[in-house]
Every structure is written in structure tokens, then in C-alpha cells.
Design a protein around this nucleic acid. Structure first.
Lengths: 249, 249
DNA sequence: AAGTGGTCTAGACCACCTA
DNA sequence: AGGTGGTCTAGACCACTTT
């Protein structure tokens, strides 16, 4: 089988030329015409063969680079990348799916009270120990089943609306789906492995010592001040992350 | 403060114009000149103001879209996206860092033997129950400390070199760093929360009921046959995943 | 010197939205 | 109809690598 034989770009298609080219090259790599480590045809050849401009070819190649399929070396060529474990990437959208259907979710507020920051909370929120904070503890249900326990500490700023909006169910929904305008500029996350015990186990209705993901978050407002620090405790039996790398058709 | 005032692209810079434009717009969004939900200047205006071509502007905008910073609606405009939790993604490269320094790692093979596939393994490797497989169990050390337990089941194909290369330490290192040519075309990964117990706890030298990440993998060869199925059991105290969302400077 | 990737232009044309 | 994003061209010029 010859490379690039016969295959052409369909100019009448709704699919843009650069995307067709991406798919053509992906398919040829998947078919083993270009093997791991081997060189793709030079761009000039692709331009001639497919009758497109250099910009179109480059756009296609850039997409293949983004997809982790090829690497380019200036002056040398474009090469098929070997599969790497490091390029596995996991999205929280797996978890987000749990929130796509608003009707199937509900939130129960277990606790919401004014508090003062201890050393730990103060350092996380960049305030002084003893300053006022808002403590929120709530249980998130999916299909009447508790799946996540959210505990958050918020900086108390009477002149802002953040506190109220954080309290509301809709804001949490907005955070996950991105539909609402959140008041946050940026956020940090860490995922840790965790074992649910005692009270947490009771609340989430799982046996003691059940596995869980602990999602620690910090949210910042547009002045780059930390506003919210807390954790989502997610039942391990209700959530996992998946990813694919390499060439999938 | 006026949008786009004074700021210009430095044509003498080594940084390409499209990348400068990305950074300019990011900085203006971070500075609150364009707030969440608000509209960016139309492309025609950016073309005029910065004295670049439409292709350069579009390339910059496409990158901002990739970064999750803006959304475009054809016929309407380009808008700043609110921060979304769903766009939170983490890479296995966090874990890869543990492997960057080859000298600090070592691997001990606990078990390696011919076996036959049971129902479970057969279905995962797309072979028939009873067919021959290779079973490998090994402990991965970092700074003399056990951090991961890897158990893998491989399809036994005498005419291939995959088995040998899988056995070797270097292949595992290559998988993580991407330096070696792996024999795999593609792979799937799932991350689950897990609780280490009994024998696993002893091997990894952690107390019973310690938290862990369970990474289940399947690797495929260039004929799309499953070749390897197994799990990495990673000590939760030695590994966590982090990520940032929204606008960071 | 020849071959390769990388950036950029100055337009053209189209599709979509709003009025 | 006028404004907006989206694709595409046919070159030009540059930087890097190999011969």
C-alpha cells in the first residue's frame, strides 16, 4: 500500500480541509503506513498531493501535535510519536456528567455557620487567624444517593455577594457545568486518595474504610484573593477517571 | 483603563506575534479589563489595532479557546468564559516526575511466570480462557522506598519481542518517559480510588487500610490486539494530582 | 545548497446572527 | 444589510539541519 494513494480531500464536504487532513493522516498512522518513529511526508509534498496551501497543512500538523500523535523537528521533519504514559490526561468532566441532569441532583446543607479561621484555614485563605469565615458542609445527592461530601471555608466579606451565591445550589451546579457566571477568576485542585471513615462513612452511606477521592480546592476572586478553600469527598464506587492515548480510530 | 491601549506587538521579539497576542489578551482578561461573560473586541478590530493579519489573530483566538479562556459564537463574537470545574484536567505526568531521575528508581520483580487466562483476563485481553499468558508482579522503588506495585498479564506470543521488552526495566522507564520506542499503538487507563490491605500493604510498607490510587491499564499493539492488562497500585501518600483552572498569569 | 519546519500576509469567500 | 467568526489561498521570508 502506497502512502497517500488516491485519498483526496473532498472540497464539497462540510468538514474543513484541515480537519479532513488530520483524519487522513491519523488513519494512515493507525493503519501502520507510518509507524512509530517514522517520518511523515514533508509539508511541501502534502501541499502538492492534497492541493491545499501551506497554512492548511500546518494547521493539520499542529492539531496532530496537540493530539500527541506526532512531533516536529525544525529542519528535519515530522515524526510519529511513540505512545507515552505521561500523556494520559484525565478530565473532571467524568465527574461532571453526574451533574449534567440537574433534576437528578439535590443538595442537602448539613451545616452553615459563621466561624473564625484557625492557623490552617488562615494560611490557605491568606487571612489572619481569628478573622471571620463561613463554614459550609453539604451533601450532594445523585438519584437520591449521596455521592459527595463538600466542606468549604469561605472568607467572609459582607460587601460581596460571593457568600450568598456559594450557599446556593445553583452556584455549585454552575461551577460544574459552567453555565452560570461564577464569581471566581481561577482555581487550584489537588486529587488525593482517601479512606472514608466514621462520620463521613455514615453520611455517604458506605461501609467504614471505603475508598474515595479527596478533591481539595482553592478558588480565587478577580483580585486574586483566595475566597474558598475546601474539599469534595467523592465516593470511589461512584466515580473513576478514564483516558486514552495513542492512535485510536 | 482602555482596552488595548498602547500595548503593541514587538516585531523584533523572538516570541511569535500570535503568541504575543495570546499573552496580551490573557493579561487583559486576568486584569479584569474583559470580565467573565463579556465580549472581546471583534477580530477585525484586533487586526487593525495590532497590525497583524486575520490568520494571526485567529491562531491566537484558537489557542485561547484551547486554553479554555474564551468561547466563540459564529456571527456573534468572542466571549470570556467563566471558570469551570469541569475543565479541570490532570496528567499522569505528575506521576511521571517520580521517574524522571532514572537513578533514583529501581524495580524488583516479585514474580514472573507462565500462566493461563481465566475468564476475567481472557475477556480483557480478547483471548480465550485457557490460552497462555505471562504474569508479572513487580515492585517499583523510588529512593529505596516502595511506591508502586505493578501487576500485569500479557498475551504470550512467542514470535514477538513484546514479552521480553515488557520484562525489562527499561521498557517501563520508556513507557513513562517516552524515550524508548514502545511496541504499543494505543492504551487505555482508568484511575480508581483504592484501599490497600493485607499482602499489598506489606509489600508497599504501609499500614493496613491505607489509601491508594489504582491505575488499570490496557495496552494494544499495532494490530489492535490487547497485549497487556494490569494495574499499578500507587501509594496515596506518595502521589497526588494537581491542576489549575481559570486565568492564571 | 537543498530540504525541512515555522511564521506571516493581504486579501477572498462563506456561514451565521441581529436588526 | 452589516457585523461577526471560520476557512483558505499563494505566495513570501526566516531558521534549522543535512549534505
Amino acid at each position: 500500500m502506497q502512502p497517500n494513494d488516491n485519498i483526496q480531500i473532498d472540497r464539497k464536504s462540510f468538514e474543513p480541509a484541515y480537519m479532513q487532513l488530520v483524519n487522513i493522516l491519523r488513519r494512515q498512522i493507525a493503519a501502520g503506513i507510518y509507524r512509530s518513529g517514522s517520518q511523515l511526508p514533508p509539508e511541501s509534498e502534502l501541499i502538492d498531493h492534497f492541493g491545499v496551501s501551506s497554512m492548511t497543512v500546518r494547521r493539520a500538523i499542529n492539531l496532530l501535535i496537540d493530539q500527541g500523535v506526532v512531533t516536529t523537528i525544525q529542519g528535519k521533519g515530522t515524526f510519529v510519536k511513540p505512545m507515552e504514559m505521561r500523556s494520559f490526561s484525565f478530565q473532571l468532566s467524568n465527574l461532571t456528567n453526574l451533574f449534567s441532569d440537574k433534576d437528578r441532583n439535590s443538595i442537602k446543607i448539613l451545616d452553615a455557620k459563621m466561624s473564625t479561621a484557625d492557623e490552617m484555614i488562615a494560611s490557605k485563605l491568606s487571612i489572619n487567624p481569628g478573622e471571620r469565615t463561613l463554614y459550609i458542609k453539604r451533601l450532594i445527592y445523585h438519584d437520591k444517593e449521596p455521592i459527595m461530601l463538600h466542606i468549604a471555608n469561605l472568607v467572609y466579606r459582607p460587601y460581596r455577594r460571593i457568600v450568598e451565591s456559594e450557599m446556593e445550589v445553583s452556584s455549585l451546579h454552575g461551577l460544574f457545568t459552567g453555565t452560570d457566571k461564577t464569581e471566581f477568576k481561577k482555581g487550584e485542585f489537588a486529587i488525593e486518595a482517601y479512606v472514608i471513615k466514621d462520620e463521613e462513612a455514615k453520611l455517604l452511606m458506605v461501609p467504614d474504610s471505603s475508598p474515595a477521592f479527596k478533591l481539595v480546592h482553592t478558588f480565587y476572586d478577580f483580585e486574586d484573593h483566595a475566597v474558598s478553600w475546601g474539599t469534595f469527598l467523592c465516593r470511589g464506587d461512584k466515580l473513576c477517571f478514564t483516558s486514552k492515548v495513542g492512535i485510536w480510530d
